[in-house]
């Protein structure tokens, strides 16, 4: 096991240079080296989506990204969604107001997948929302409220003119 000669990456707009072992994932880098524990580990093998973050604008499972692969990339995690003044992102507000959160373990991943969708497609249909969230599992809510929350967030963003 050889240390990677320092990984440089941007997380939530902030530049980091971290020295990490060669064998850790982006998920571990975020949680254990940067203390960003909003991103969750469910299955650790690409099936559940709890670890979803945006890497250069695309939703990825951070458990399937070797940390070394994140070199030079720009990562957005759930911690980076609220405004610096603490105002929540419309997706976060809509998940709360629609009751789309129960235990909350899947929520960061769900919201990041939804964010990737709304960035590319600001007015998705329910069907498009389903496809965008198809890589995220939730044991609690039964999905209907989650889909409605994403619809509502899209409407809020359209109304406010913010992303």
């Amino acid at each position: 096991m050889k240390p990677v000669p320092r990984i440089k990456l941007k997380v939530n707009g902030q530049e980091y240079q971290v020295e990490v072992p060669a064998d850790i994932t982006l998920l571990e880098l975020l949680r254990e080296y940067l203390s960003l524990t909003g991103t969750k580990e469910g299955c650790g093998k690409g099936e559940c989506g709890a670890c979803t973050v945006l890497m250069d604008g695309q939703a990825v499972n951070s458990c399937l990204v070797p940390a070394a692969k994140a070199e030079g990339s720009e990562v957005l995690t759930i911690e980076g969604l609220a405004s610096p003044d603490g105002r929540l992102h419309p997706l976060q507000e809509a998940f709360i107001s629609e009751g789309a959160v129960q235990c909350g373990f899947c929520t960061p991943g769900m919201i990041m997948s939804a964010k990737a969708l709304l960035d590319q497609n600001p007015h998705p249909t329910r069907e498009e929302i389903k496809v965008a969230l198809s890589g995220n599992l939730c044991r609690c809510t039964g999905y209907a409220k989650i889909i409605t929350a994403v619809e509502k967030a899209a409407a809020m963003i359209a109304g406010e003119g913010r992303g």
């Binding site: 690409g46 979803t52 939703a59 990204v65 965008a132 890589g135």
Partner: peptide, 9 residues
């Protein structure tokens, strides 16, 4: 194939 996160990678 897969879900969006897998297809992206």
């Amino acid at each position: 194939m897969g879900g969006p996160q897998i297809r992206n990678v």
